[in-house]
Amino acid sequence: MSTFVQITVLMSSAIETGFQEKIDQDIRIEPRDWMPEAYRKTLIRQISQHAHSEIVGMLPEANWITRAPTLKRKATLIAKVQDEAGHGLYLYSSAETLGVSREEMIDQLHQGKAKYSSIFNYPTLTWADMGAIGWLVDGAAIMNQVPLCRASYGPYARAMVRICREESFHQRQGFEILLVLSKGNEAQRRMCQDAIDRWWWPSVMMFGPNDDASPHTAQSMRWKIKRFTNDELRQRFVDVCAGQVKLLGMHLPDPDLVWNEARQHYDFGPIDWNEFREVINGNGPCNKERLAARVKAHADGAWVREAALAHAQKNSIREKAA
């Protein structure tokens, strides 16, 4: 090995050690700081997936805006879906600080190269789904996201603080939708239980594969992008929901759900990982429709974006000429 190469290797390993020391001391990494390429890539993957999930996640709920049962519910639902668009914006911006553009990320989504949360590939069939999504899906998202407010990358952590605040509001709204249904007539109670039945297991799967099958967890935890494992968060979610469902007078669709005194946790039944894999691989009930809706909105908007750009250019020429 030449002296030059030796020095370079030593230097880069010293920088890398310095980086890990900062992480260990809970010092935030900022966009201009040196970071290992793998750290950058992991963050881009995770933040862009999260941003895409917010944007695709607008669709199943927007599906009920025009059919919301009261004016108050309609306004609240529009505001909620609008919040999700806002979350998508903060997250795309935070990923852009890592050197990737929003256009690139959106292209990857539209070409099927980037993933988004599989939960949004399930259909919203009744009004109660707006409640179940708020309570269970947003509830699971919050479990995942609250620890991300302490993630080591500054722009991501700061975006998550604001997102979590809004998500917890959404979750309470969702639970309240179900609470009203649970106190309603027989059809409404049926609607409520049916939505819980359909959204429970997909929500439990939102935490991702079991720890022994999660390839990225160990490194992400060393880098403090992640603070808890998938299974830890999943257990916490099950424990919370098993208590809350009693307030609704409904039940979770799991015959194996039982309090375990020794563990001080609820035991729960086996997860259908086959379904999880199928939905991730494109075979969920709405994968094609969700992606097609995003691609269509983008394609239909192309002439609008081009015109806005052309007008701005013409304006700047006119201003220079004036």
Partner: peptide, 10 residues
Amino acid sequence: SEWTGHGPIL
């Protein structure tokens, strides 16, 4: 509100 989720740009 029919546009929500389907606009030309976020």
